Simulated assay, not measured.
Amino acid sequence: MTFIDHLDHLVLTCVDLAATKRFYVEVLQMQVETFGEGRTALKFGNQKINIHVRGGEFEPKAHLPVPGSLDLCFIAAVPLDDVISHLKRCNWPILEGPVERTGAVQKIRSVYVRDPDLNLIEISEPI
């Protein structure tokens, strides 16, 4: 038995806060939240991504906070074909997919994109 239940948040280090917010809000349709002393987070479901800008990270921080080092997989709330259509409307390039992958609890169908810092973003639906 494990004592970990779920992920609450993770921290993404970016170079350009405005470009990062634009991608995650317009392309991935997350909500921006300001908290603490002007900190920024991106909310989706019951989770969030806290944003650090390179050189202005909040303490404590990762040992080597580097933009572009994340590889994240999100499960879509809508069919993947709707996600693909939305990405095309946003003129956001799909690197790969749709392809079948193995998710945490079942097989998934995924597409891959990159955010402005070149983090690899996988968007999936259960199959």
Rank of each mutant, 00 (worst) to 15 (best):
S85G: 12
F74E: 00
S110Q: 00
L118R: 06
L118Y: 09
E57R: 03
Q47P: 11
Y112D: 01
G38T: 12
I49E: 10
G68D: 11
A19F: 07
L17D: 04
V53E: 12
Y112E: 01
V11Y: 02
H9V: 14
V78M: 04
I121F: 03
L42R: 01
V11L: 03
M1Y: 10
M1E: 13
N46F: 09
D81I: 08
L87D: 07
T40V: 15
G45D: 15
L72C: 05
K21A: 07
I127D: 10
F35P: 07
G68E: 05
H63Q: 15
C14H: 04
A18G: 03
I49C: 12
V105T: 14
D82F: 03
V27L: 04
P116S: 02
I51A: 09
T34D: 08
G97R: 00
V99E: 00
L80T: 02
Y24L: 03
P116C: 02
I75M: 07
I108R: 00
E125Q: 06
I4H: 11
I108H: 01
C90H: 06
T40E: 08
K107N: 14
G55D: 10
K107T: 09
M30T: 06
R109C: 11
L10N: 02
S110C: 11
P98A: 02
L95M: 04
D81T: 13
N119V: 05
K107H: 11
G38K: 10
L95Y: 02
N46E: 14
T102I: 11
G103Q: 04
D5R: 08
K48V: 07
D115M: 03
D82C: 04
Q29P: 04
V66A: 12
G68Q: 04
R22F: 08
H63I: 15
R39A: 15
C14N: 04
L118V: 11
W92K: 00
V53A: 10
S85E: 10
D117R: 00
I127T: 15
S85M: 05
G55T: 11
I84Q: 00
D16S: 07
F3H: 11
L10T: 14
L42V: 15
A76S: 15
L70Y: 07
S110F: 05
E96K: 01
Q29D: 08
R89D: 11
G38A: 13
N119P: 11
L95W: 01
N50M: 13
I127H: 06
N119A: 07
V53T: 15
G45Y: 13
V66R: 02
F35T: 08
E37Q: 13
V53D: 08
K21N: 06
H9P: 12
A41W: 12
R114Y: 09
P126S: 12
M30C: 05
F74V: 05
V105F: 15
R39Y: 14
V111I: 14
L10A: 02
E100V: 09
